[in-house]
């Protein structure tokens, strides 16, 4: 009998990376088995992107020099680029979150509670979808296209782009985990699925179309506004200096609080009786 084995911080990081690598590997194995699904999901996301692009292009096509709440055609393209990156990340790594309501209801989270690794990592990241790589390619291409239509790439854009991308992906994780936490409070309510849909719908347009308080709520509390709106504002130079620093700090703190909330909510999991 070996007794408790204490793992160093470095060991923990190594273990988490090994788990992610295994999720990535089994994702590839799974998709190698379901090849048509691979293709279908790529096309599905292309449909999602196309519908968004066409909708905005049609709206801007209705009149010359149209802007939507101060966002011109080029700025909206940058906005959509970030939206697609966030979506590609969600489809690649976080799609298991969609199944959380039924997993709670059917008692499928028993193994997650038993595993010696963070529940957020083991649950949300377990379904790696390699087609996301193709989606990422499309999303980045469109983001690049959007940025070039804004004018020549400046040093400011290149400097702020990694930070904007980090915020976009961080927010995607925070939103998925936060809405998952709600699901434990209202079992079988489909609340998280409903809010994901609502959040996606609300964040699918530049947030300046909403009143100030709604906008602040969507950025600072939910924070679906950080999926595309805030990153686009950062690279377009509309958010900088102390405001940018405050935004990044707040989003990281909010994210950590949401992760803690999820871990706490997970304790409400009652499993299934059988």
């Amino acid at each position: 009998m070996s007794g408790a084995r204490h793992i160093s911080l470095l060991g923990k990081c190594r273990q988490r990376l090994a788990i992610l690598r295994q999720f990535l590997r089994v994702g590839l194995v799974r998709k190698a088995q379901f090849r048509i699904d691979f293709l279908a999901q790529v096309v599905m996301d292309l449909c999602f992107y196309s519908v968004h692009i066409i909708t905005f292009e049609l709206l801007f096509g209705m009149g010359d020099g149209f802007t939507i709440a101060g966002w011109d055609r080029a700025a909206v393209r940058v906005f959509l680029g970030f939206l697609f990156v966030a979506d590609a990340f969600m489809m690649t790594w976080l799609s298991q979150g969609w199944f959380l309501p039924q997993d709670i209801k059917n008692g499928n989270l028993d193994p997650v509670r038993l595993r010696p690794a963070p529940s957020i990592l083991v649950y949300f990241f377990q379904r790696f979808s390699p087609e996301g790589a193709v989606n990422f390619l499309c999303a980045f291409s469109y983001l690049g296209y959007g940025l070039t239509t804004c004018g020549p790439l400046s040093a400011d854009i290149i400097w702020t782009l990694p930070l904007a991308l980090f915020l976009c992906i961080w927010a995607e994780v925070v939103v998925a985990v936060g809405l998952g936490a709600l699901e434990f409070l209202f079992v079988n309510s489909d609340l998280s699925r409903f809010f994901i849909e609502m959040a996606q719908t609300a964040s699918g347009k530049p947030l300046d179309i909403y009143k100030r308080r709604v906008r602040q709520f969507l950025i600072l509390v939910l924070p679906v506004g950080v999926l595309a709106h805030v990153p686009a504002e950062i690279v377009l130079g509309r958010c900088h200096g102390l405001e940018l620093l405050g935004q990044v700090t707040w989003q990281i703190l909010l994210g950590l609080a949401v992760f803690a909330l999820f871990r706490r909510s997970f304790k409400r999991y009652e499993s299934a009786l059988s």
């Binding site: 788990i19 590997r25 010696p116």
Partner: peptide, 25 residues
């Protein structure tokens, strides 16, 4: 759990074991 699988339904068992190896280090 006899009535509840802990392995991954759509993967060969060997792949699930590899995943467990990573999780349990």
């Amino acid at each position: 759990m006899g009535q509840r699988s802990q392995l991954w339904w759509d993967l060969p068992a060997l792949d699930s074991f590899e995943l467990l190896r990573a999780i349990y280090d």
